[in-house]
Structures are given as C-alpha cells and as structure tokens.
Design a protein around this nucleic acid. Structure first.
Lengths: 235, 235
DNA sequence: CTGTAACCGTGACAAAAGTCATCGGCACCC
DNA sequence: GGGTGCCGATGACTTTTGTCACGGTTACAG
C-alpha cells in the first residue's frame, strides 16, 4: 500500500516524464487539479473504446496497457511504472482509448482531465514536445512487438523475455544468473502473445535442455550463452 | 511517371497533412529547401537503422513502410500515398529510422532535412500538434496490426483485407462486388504477416467455398455476407 | 479440517502455419 | 524459337500453436 501521506502531488508530477520541465507555477496549477485514484491489483482503470476523459500519471505501482480478444485472450502492449503517463495520445486526437488499462499491483494514479491538459499545452509548447517524445518511444516499442509477433516463435519470445529480465534484474549466484519471474504463467503469456499452456511447456523444455532451472518463480539461468544464442538465432 | 513539370513544390506541401496550415511565407521557406527525389518501383528509400537525415512527403505514387526479418520475410506496417509524410518521428526523438521504406510504384518524394523541419517547429508550434495527430493515427494503426497478429489467423486477416478493399474499391457487378488486387501474393503476404504460399492457399480455399471468384488479379466477391461473417467471427 | 479457488503441469489432440520442391503459365529478350 | 525469369498453384511434410480435459499443489476462508 502507498503511504497515506505520500509525496506532495506537485513533486510527483515534476518527476514524471511528461511534466518534468514545468515551472513551479504550472506544477501547482496541475497539482491542484489532479485527482488521485487508487486501484487494487487486477482492477480496471479504463477500457478500450471508452471516450477519453483525460490522462493518468503513475504515482506508485505498475499498470498494464492491453488489448483483449473476444475469445478472452489478452495481449499486453506495455507496462508502466512510477513517473510514466498513460493515454497522452487520445487526449490529443480526441478519439477513444485505443486499449484497456489495469493495475498489476496496488497502484496510485494521478488523473489529469483532458481540458486541464489541453489548456496547459496551449500555453506551454514544450509539453507537446515531451508528449511527442513519449509517444515516439511507445511507437518504437509497438513496432518491436509487431516484429516479434510476425517473425518469431513463442519459444523465441519467451527466451527474449527471460534474457531481458536476466540482464536487468539478474544476480550472479553460484549456479548462474538468478532472478524472480514478476508474474504467473497466464500474465506472462499475455505479455509475449500466447496462452498459458505454451509458456508452461516452453519453460519446462528450456529446463529439460539444461538452459535454466526453475523453482517456483525463481529462475536460475545456468547457460547464458545458450539463452543468448536462442534469442539471436536467425528466423 | 510523374509529369516532369508537376505541381509547384509549395502547393504539394500545402496539400500534405503535416503542413496544411502554414502561411504562404513558411510554405515557400520549406519549398525552397525541400529536395525532390524520384524512386522507381521496388527501390529502397531508406533502411531501418540508418541515422535519420530528415523526413519525406509523398508527392505522387505510393510507398511502403516495413520491417524485414533475417530470414527474408517482411512485415508491412503502413502504406502511404500522396500528401502523407514518413519518418516525422525519428526527426524528433533523434533516433534512427525504426523501419525501412521502399517505393511500391514509380514515386516522387520531397525530402525535408531534419534541421529545416526542427527550425520550423520551433517557430510554429501548430506543426508539432499536426505531427502529434499524424503519429497518433499511426499508433492506432500499429495497435490494430498487433491485435490482428496476436489474436487472428491468416485466413481471418486475409478476409479482413479483402473486405476492406471491397468496401473501398469494389464496384457492384452482375456477379457480385468486383475489384483488383493491388499487388501480387508475395506483397499481400507481407501486408498481412505471412508467406506467399498461405495467401495462395487461402485465396483458393475461399474460392472453392464459393465466397469469391478469382481471375488473375480480379476478385469478384459472390457472397459478401460470408466474407463479413468471416471477419467478424469471434476468436 | 474441509471446501473452494487459483495456479501450474501435462497428455492427447486438432488446427494452423510454415517449408520444400515441383510444375505450369506468361512475358520479355535476344 | 528457345532461353530466362517471375509468378502463382499445389502436394507432401514438419513444426508450431492452440484447445480441452484432467490432476496436483497451495493458500485461504469458514
């Protein structure tokens, strides 16, 4: 749970990627109008297709942006932590939210209404430039997802996912590089674009091949080279 | 081939989605600096990973934005015609081109250097807003591609593609809705994210099921309802 | 303790996707 | 005409993906 008092709103905003360059006065303008919303794990923030009311800045916790299929599958587009913002885009082009957002853990978000944000943008063109940066990064990420979905197998995507984790979170231990999976198989499947069972099977297979060892959610990569070559192998 | 004289450059720019709101003076500023490049069918405009030198506005013809895999497959992200611009984004965030671009036909492009464009943006904030609009539309399109790749089959994507064409280009004829495929099987495959053979097979199958009739590149959809229900069927 | 729910692993299958090789047609060029 | 190259169709096969059903574990509530 987030501390009840927490940081002053203005400070949270200042540390966000979108508003980091604003002057004192603008920050307090925003801070006064921003509304704090709390979400518990799994709760829906908004759903694809809803008209866009405004954007959110993550204060604490993590959220996931995702599409869902009529068959019940989900595809995660991005996961955002403290300082990130969500839905800058529909605020601009006036369209509906293009995807749904839910909280991964207990999460605190600051809501900024469309009107307030647009007013701010008119007065401060550098905010629009920031938005462009953020949106640009998002676009590159989406292109990466398309590339993976279109060209690679589930096994490849899983290996790439594990490698990323190992590089970011992994600690060297006696047996290899060790880290914790941040989610269950179902969630993992949504993130790499497949179903629960395939994640389970491919993890087992990597284990039986001696690439890694599993113990609950703890992963120990015994053979980093094998994992790397799995990822860079041509397709 | 584009007429040799063609339209005055300033007029072409004015009709582009990015620069449509500029005043006379800015248009001629740009027009003087923009460089016309001609490409023949299939020619590469730039390649993924190259440092970004500037952006292009399509004067005539069509281009395709695509990723390619090491195995030789390609995935088309977007196709742009006259008035559209390409690579607005990397001009902003300073990164490399995230994908490659090639000409689909004989095509004439106007090149605007990074420097000129940035100078313009600083003076005219409304250009940045336009960029945001364009990038926004692109982002929505990419999300759509991800959704299709992640949730649907080749058959479904092909049906959706055909339906789109039928609605945009189709003429009612005695036997049904008729239109021309704008490309060969290979290119079609790149656009819906699969390989040549699967396009061929699925087209044949749709034909043998009586949904449509093929004659070279001419398609006649005999059973529009069947095609529609194919597309909207849950997955 | 016991029922229930969530999660994981797995076998058995079915369907889809992709690969490889081959054949036929068509256009174009000496 | 004969050669060459490009394109589409298709059969045979493999791999990958996805589905369904089930059983086991764990954790938590009553």
């Amino acid at each position: 749970m987030t501390s009840v008092t927490g940081l002053p709103t203005a400070l949270v905003l200042e540390r966000s990627s979108l508003f980091s360059e604003l002057a004192e006065s603008e920050l307090s303008f925003l801070a006064q109008r921003a509304v704090r919303h709390q979400f518990s794990a799994g709760e829906l923030v908004f759903e694809e297709g809803e008209p866009c009311a405004g954007l959110y800045v993550v204060e604490s916790g993590h959220i996931r942006i995702f599409k869902s299929s009529s068959g019940g599958r989900e595809q995660v587009l991005s996961i955002e932590g403290p300082g990130s913002s969500v839905a800058e885009l529909p605020v601009f082009d006036g369209g509906a939210y293009p995807a749904s957002v839910s909280a991964l853990e207990n999460t605190s978000l600051l809501f900024v209404s469309k009107q307030d944000f647009q007013a701010l943008c008119l007065e401060h063109p550098q905010v629009a430039l920031k938005v462009l940066k953020v949106v640009g990064a998002r676009l590159r990420k989406l292109v990466g997802i398309i590339e993976e979905l279109s060209f690679t197998t589930v096994r490849h995507r899983l290996a790439a996912y594990l490698l990323r984790l190992a590089q970011k979170e992994g600690k060297r231990s006696a047996e290899g590089v060790e880290f914790l999976l941040p989610a269950g198989n179902q969630e993992l499947a949504s993130q790499i674009g497949t179903v629960r069972e395939l994640v389970s099977r491919n993890l087992s297979r990597l284990q039986s091949e001696g690439v890694l060892k599993l113990d609950g959610r703890t992963v120990i990569v015994n053979n980093m080279e094998a994992l790397e070559s799995e990822v860079s192998s041509a397709e």
